[in-house]
């Protein structure tokens, strides 16, 4: 169990709803759900996950911490906003789903190897390095995340698109060496560190 997770368990004891309210983006809305299920039915990825938003909300209220935070349901959200638009209680469901994903990631409870999570992690690592997303390196990292053989297979299957992008000057093969950076990478990283500090304080990870 991660240290953050241990601390959270200690802090909130059995009150998972309180934990979500304080630490998850828009988590204070969860209790307003009335279990109509329109979000569940509206989600275009509904078939892909185990728990619908409304069910996750009920699980939060029922204190099912482990099940919620290890669920992969919130990682499936593609931000289509159908649920938000239709929710009769105007819950910011999309945001809550992202908030839950983020929180479970922070506590290191999120499912290992969950593709969305991996993609996000690679994206973030790529981004913070130079302050810009290096699309070539990012793509390669994604292709090879599941090993060398799979990486080659991925590369071959994307060959045509890659060549097209190069032709259209949307992809520069030279980016493989270094790539262009932001002018003040140190400043960017400081800024991100500050943001994280604020966020942690706001969410109660630090005092």
């Amino acid at each position: 169990m991660s240290e953050l997770n241990q601390k959270a368990v200690a802090k909130y004891e059995n009150n998972f709803l309180r934990e979500v309210e304080e630490r998850v983006e828009d988590g204070e809305w969860v209790k307003m759900c009335m279990q109509c299920g329109v979000c569940a039915g509206s989600c275009p990825l509904g078939n892909a996950w185990e728990h619908s938003p409304q069910k996750l909300f009920r699980m939060i209220m029922a204190g099912k911490r482990e099940e919620v935070l290890t669920s992969d349901a919130m990682w499936m959200c593609t931000s289509c906003y159908s649920c938000i638009v239709r929710c009769p209680r105007k819950l910011p469901i999309t945001h809550i789903m992202h908030g839950l994903a983020h929180y479970s990631h922070r506590l290191e409870l999120a499912p290992k190897g969950q593709p969305t999570r991996e993609l996000a992690r690679i994206f973030w690592q790529n981004l913070v390095k130079t302050g810009r997303v290096n699309e070539l390196k990012f793509s390669l990292a994604v292709y090879f995340k599941d090993g060398f053989v799979q990486g080659i297979k991925n590369l071959l299957s994307m060959q045509g698109i890659a060549l097209g992008l190069v032709k259209a000057r949307r992809l520069n093969p030279m980016e493989i060496i270094g790539g262009h950076k932001c002018r003040d990478i140190g400043g960017i990283q400081k800024m991100l560190a500050k943001a994280r500090e604020i966020e942690d304080r706001r969410q109660g990870f630090t005092s």
Partner: peptide, 11 residues
Amino acid sequence: LHGVDTEGYHR
């Protein structure tokens, strides 16, 4: 009609 039966979750 599309939706989810929330009693136990059935699409």
